[in-house]
Design a protein around this nucleic acid. Structure first.
Lengths: 257, 257
DNA sequence: TAGAAAATCAAACAATCGTTTGAATCAATC
DNA sequence: GATTGATTCAAACGATTGTTTGATTTTCTA
């Protein structure tokens, strides 16, 4: 590589904005990102917007400024690559969720706002990871949402396998704080909430709204708190809502008649 | 439901639920489904499980028992085919939603349960179409959910165009029934609810739970009512939840500290 | 510094993609 | 019953897919 081509490469990296993937001149002291990491980052970014089927290996290797064969050399196959992209995020999330749930149950739940606390335990790790640039930063939430909705069978089976244990733990925790809610009702509402949060976090305008909230925060903890203050009551009210109220039924019956 | 051969066909139609695409014997008097409709039905079924990028024209024409070239002959292109599959469902849904909203506003909303009534107005047309086999039957809800989550740019832009007007009308209706909720808060919660309902309805276990509820119903209206009694209070409670309660904030602050 | 291992490369692989072609077949009209 | 238009068909189009190859370069080790 001589000097003019290096210049051209640097320009292209500026245009592409995200992956600072491209090579730096020999005199530059900045640490060069490895080929594997450049591929992982480019894959993650493309998966977020285009999904598994919509992302080709050539699009990945082009964005990562890497040879096409590098994917199969370093990761084996397209599926193995995407599995690594997804698990490195999801596993970290679920580990922190379970750790926080352990701590919460050891300390004992608030008698009144226990449901809000469990909800917070579900969301605080996601918010923390979304602030950590090493875990994808703001794109972390979009990755979660897209993965949850991706139609590719490979993605769906991978998620089911990775979420099963964590979901069971949280369902049990909610059940203890919502004794009046039947197991069937709880299952449905919980599933509804998990689905919906994933979908909402992935949606553009919700995330824009959240980043608007963040501006006024002074610290990261205050930041997360504002988010929870916004979301937890909303979700807790939904979970706590009484089922089959006579007056409500009457108001609705007037519509279907 | 009379002679044995008809019985067998009825059974299969129950199992396959959707595309009766396959050929019938020449002596059968049943009207043969046209090539165009067989393609549309097969496309819808495949889109539900595999999305736009994951569905090939060859998979469609194989399931529809139709020549590969028939798609381009009858619909022009893959995108035009999918656009027709999506719009024939979504447009019918939004028309009925707006018609019901007109009727509700003309009659005047319930002073206490107005929010539940608007929510019901959002869901009753979806439930009615989900019961109408001519509009896709039970798969109609899955189609909505999958379309909402599909990553293909073509699908996303098509949905944005088709939903815009209806969403604006309903947001205005909610705003009148939730005067205490700021426009920003309403936007976020409403978007959250629409996203989540679409995601939940598309999820397998929620639909299974709903069909379990249906068994005990005697009529279709009673059927829809049970669904609403289940869902409307849940969503209305979420929309009505008070924002930024001091005690709630305190309970959450204990976690982030 | 010589040699071995790891990594990158251009090029091609077979398979599949959406689309097109032109002949064969069907259905309806005169 | 012949003719015309609509439809279906097998076959192939060029482009793109994931993957592999074998030579070349880079990196590390002895």
């Amino acid at each position: 590589m001589s000097s003019p081509p290096v210049f051209a490469l640097d320009l292209e990296s500026l245009i592409r904005a995200k992956s600072i993937a491209t090579a730096v001149s020999a005199s530059d002291s900045r640490p060069k990102i490895s080929t594997k990491d450049r591929i992982l980052n480019a894959t993650e970014a493309l998966f977020i917007t285009r999904g598994f089927d919509g992302t080709s290996l050539r699009a990945i290797t082009t964005d990562a400024a890497v040879n096409l064969a590098a994917v199969n050399y370093h990761f084996g196959s397209k599926e193995e690559l995407f599995a690594l992209v997804l698990t490195r995020r999801i596993d970290a999330l679920n580990e922190q969720r379970l750790r926080r749930l352990d701590a919460l149950e050891a300390k004992g739940l608030d008698s009144v706002y226990g449901v809000e606390q469990i909800i917070a335990t579900l969301f605080l790790p996601a918010l923390a990871l979304a602030r950590d640039e090493a875990h994808g930063g703001a794109d972390f939430l979009r990755l979660l949402g897209r993965a949850y909705a991706d139609p590719a069978p490979f993605v769906r089976s991978l998620l089911a396998e990775r979420y099963a244990a964590t979901n069971a733990r949280f369902k049990a925790a909610f059940a203890r704080s919502l004794p009046d809610l039947g197991g069937e009702d709880l299952s449905m509402r919980l599933h509804f909430i998990l689905d919906s949060v994933a979908a909402s976090l992935a949606a553009d305008d919700v995330r824009r709204h959240l980043s608007g909230l963040k501006v006024s925060a002074r610290t990261n903890d205050e930041d997360d708190l504002q988010f929870l203050v916004y979301l937890a009551p909303f979700l807790a009210a939904a979970l706590r809502a009484a089922v089959r109220q006579p007056q409500q039924i009457a108001a609705l019956r007037a519509l279907t008649a």
